[in-house]
Design a protein around this nucleic acid. Sequence first.
RNA 1: GCUGGGUUCGUAUAACGGUUAGUACUCAAGAUUCUCAAUCUUGCAAUAGGAGUUCGAUUCUCCUACCCAGUACCA
Length: 530
Amino acid sequence: MRFAPSPTGPLHMGGVRTALYNYLFAKQRKGDFILRIEDTDSNRFVPGAEEYIIEALKWCGIVPDEGVDSDGRVVETPSERHPHAPYRQSQRRGIYRKYAEQLIANGYAYYAFDSSEDLEAARAAAEGRGETFTYNQKSRLSLCNSLTLSPEETQQRLKETANWTIRFKMPENTVVAMDDMIRGHIEVNTDTLDDKVLWKRADELPTYHLANIVDDHLMEITEVIRGEEWLPSLPLHYMLYKAFGWEDTRPHFAHLSLLLKPVGNGKLSKRDGDKLGFPVFPLRWVNAEGEASHGYREDGYFPEAFVNMLAMLGWNPGDDRELFTLDELIQNFSMEKVQKAGAKFNPDKAKWFNKEYLRMKSDEELTDLFVPILEENGIKVTGCYKCPVSHDFAAASVSKNYVKGVVALIKERATFVADFWTIAPYLFKAPQEYVEKDVAKFWKEENYTLAFKAAEHMASYEGPWTAEAVGTELEEFIRGNEWPMGKVMNCLRLALSGASSGLGIADILSFIGKEEFLARISRAGEKLGK
RNA sequence: GCUGGGUUCGUAUAACGGUUAGUACUCAAGAUUCUCAAUCUUGCAAUAGGAGUUCGAUUCUCCUACCCAGUACCA
């Protein structure tokens, strides 16, 4: 199987899904997965796009068997491992010409000499009559091509100019019967089709249709999973396989529905992501104008979560399971369970997948991912997982095991690793400011005087400083005095964390320690009033 | 317009002629907690419409509506 993107920009998440389904199917059948670059349109070539595609697939764990080497470059010369090289169509230009000529020799195609201006004029004229111009069996005999010109004239023109294209001669009134692995049997009459350009003069290269069929044949592709936008071209492709005499080895086709925007109608586009605040690309992308687009990787998604989410968008295992590793997807994937209708993308569900994967990760793995974020925020992380737990708030420094403890405590509240910091920055440094609304609500004299007394009591507490022991001590003291639990606790939390909502007081105390606890209480008294 | 494809709760989907139409996300309520999350419980919510076939249609057929794609010397 193959994935054959055009390097015209960053790979869209829909493209990743197409690649993924190809990969899953290939691996399930113990087949090979080829990456082929379809760069026959030099006008739309975007520098960096090819590298982006390769890196994106790599990040997702989709590793081509052929097409890209271990150094992450598209292979240009055939070898044992890469028998079908080169894998860029621009480097295969020498291959296609003879196939195009074979088609002409056998009467399946013809040279067309109409200029773009002539065709535009024909289109405009048709539009004036309320019709649509099509280059087909009705119009081809009144246009300028090797069907209307004498053989001598045709040869003359071919010799004199490079101003020609090759068009497929679509047969008349023929029913093309096709089978799609997802959609079943489809029939189309050739009278509704046109004479597609197979060879374009601009690049002196074949168009998609020719190059794609020739390459799929030469690369021994047996199954093609591609986007739904190709379904209308399928009859042409069937006709091409027939014209080449390759019907026996024609691949099986599956046309995947498109990914739709979360709200409103239409397919998912870059704009939707910008508007609704979610990535549509696997990796961050900066275009030539310097505009950046979000990427799932940079936004903190785990590749496993991204791949899992994508797989479930239009496919299901037939039961209620939702969480699958790549290997499990390979085992369970089936074309019968691929949805026919377009799938509206749901950003909330994407986040849910990430949350699930975050929970499945070990505390140490998450800690390793969290440390760089802490350092970005000015917190030094020292030591190793075997070293003792320690912290020095004055020096903005904590031990690795301290971080691990925090991660274990808060991982269930997070969707992304970056959330760890926003959930509990106060476990790493004293609050710099206090939420105004919470101060107004809780920092009242009748509350904070009690909070100070509770803190005073804890200052004299000599027992073990664990969350459980400290929590029990504090609560029993407050309850014993018949003070309002909520008000006192919220006052304490405000002083310790800068807000009235957040982690439990006992947990906060156990992490920051008695000394820092008392320091933050007195600091709050000075800043907020006492 | 034409050609092709599609249509089950708001979203993703299950039920491949017989179910009180299930599950997940979202949302709401309750339980729990010092608060916020998390967790647990409960709830809201769908077969696009109309004919037909059938003892029985989400499921099969047809029509209509709506959505999507294609209609380039782009892929």
